[in-house]
Design a protein around this nucleic acid. Structure first.
Lengths: 170, 170
DNA sequence: GCAGAATAGTCGGAGCTAAAACTATCTACT
DNA sequence: AGTAGATAGTTTTAGCTCCGACTATTCTGC
C-alpha cells in the first residue's frame, strides 16, 4: 500500500465527496522546535503521502490499508500471519479482522498447515491477483508522483535514509 | 509528539533468531514493488521514529500524542481549537477529547473569547509549561538520535524533502 | 432587521491500532 | 514419556482517527 495506516477508512469514506480540499499553510503559527525536528516532518510527510495514495486509489473498492497485505501475500504465497504482520509492520492481532475480511471477499485463501497446525498458509485467489494488479497500477502512479516531488537527483539518497532510519532505530 | 500515530510493537524482533536485538526487515520476504516505493518506507521510518520517541519519553506520565499539542499551545497562547487542529494535522473533532483530558489534568486553560463566543482561547498553565519543558528535553534527545542516523551531511536536504512532500501533496 | 450562509466546537458511528490475556499446538529437555 | 516453555492465532480492551450530523454563534446581503 505504499503506506497502510488505518486512517484509511476515513479517507475511503470521503470517496463520495469528489475532490479533496486544498490545505492552507496555516499561517502565523509558531511551531517552536517542532519546525526543525525530523520526526515531526516525517509524520507530516507520511500523512500527506498516505492521503494522496488514498485519493489515487479511491475508485477501487478496497481500503488502501489492505493493499500491502495483498501485495505481500501475492509475493509470498504460503506466508503465515505472524510473518506477514512483521513484514507489514503491524501487530498480528490487527491482522485477524483484516484477513477475515479479505477471506470473506474471496480475495485470499487460508489453509491450515499439515506440519504445524497452529499456522495458516495464506495465498491469493485469482480475484485477489486481479485486484492486486489494479491496485499496483494506482500505487505506481502515486509513487511516480512522489518521485517527481523528490526529484531523480535525490531519490536514491532519500530512500536510503528512510531505510536507515527504519533499520537503525530500535 | 514529534510523531504521533501509534503503530509500533509489531516490529519488535523475534528472539529465536540468532542474538540480535534489532528488528530485522524480516528475512526471506519478497516485498515486490514495495521494496522501492518511497511511500512504504516513509511509513516504516515514521513508525520506527515514533516508537523510539515513545521509548525516550516513557518515564513521563503523558501520552506522546499530546506533546505536539502542548508545544503548539505553549508557543501560540490564545490559539483556537480549529487553528490548533490545522497546525497539528489532525481533525478538530479529534482534539475535543484530547483537550478535555489536558484540561482535566490542569495543564491547559480554555476560555471563551468575548468577541466571538464560539471560539475557545487555549493556553498553558504553569504546570503545562513545566511538563512541556520536560517533554522538550526528551524530544531533543530523540531528534539528536535521528540526526546522528541521517548524518549532518544530508540532514538539511532530507528535512527539506520531507517538507516538500508535505506541502506539495495537498 | 432578518433569512441564509459560514464558522467554532461537540457528539456519534465506524475503522484501525496495539497490548495483554487466552487457547491450541508444537518443541525441548529431563 | 511427560512437563515446561515457546509459538500461532484470536479475543478483549482501550485509544486514536476520521467523517458527518448537530448546536450555537457570527457574518453577509437584501
Amino acid at each position: 500500500m505504499v503506506e497502510l495506516d488505518e486512517t484509511a477508512s476515513a479517507l475511503v469514506a470521503s470517496r463520495h465527496r469528489g475532490g479533496r480540499k486544498k490545505k492552507e499553510p496555516v499561517t502565523g503559527i509558531d511551531y517552536g522546535p517542532l519546525a526543525d525536528w525530523l520526526g515531526f516532518h516525517l509524520r507530516l510527510a507520511q500523512i500527506a503521502s498516505f492521503q494522496a495514495f488514498a485519493n489515487e486509489a479511491q475508485q477501487i473498492d478496497l481500503s488502501p490499508g489492505r493493499f500491502a497485505l495483498l501485495m505481500l501475500i501475492g509475493r509470498n504465497p504460503g506466508i503465515s500471519q505472524t510473518r506477514l504482520s512483521r513484514a507489514h509492520g503491524s501487530d498480528k492481532s490487527t491482522l485477524t479482522p483484516a484477513l477475515n475480511d479479505l477471506k470473506r471477499r474471496g480475495l485470499i485463501t487460508r489453509g491450515r498447515l499439515k506440519s504445524d497446525r497452529r499456522s495458516y498458509q495464506l495465498a491469493l485467489t485469482p480475484a485477489g491477483h486481479q485486484l492486486l494488479a489494479r491496485l499496483t497500477a494506482c500505487a505506481t502512479r502515486h509513487d511516480q508522483h512522489l518521485d517527481r516531488i523528490v526529484g531523480p537527483r535525490d531519490r536514491g539518497r532519500f530512500l536510503q535514509l528512510l531505510r536507515k532510519l527504519h533499520t537503525e532505530l530500535g
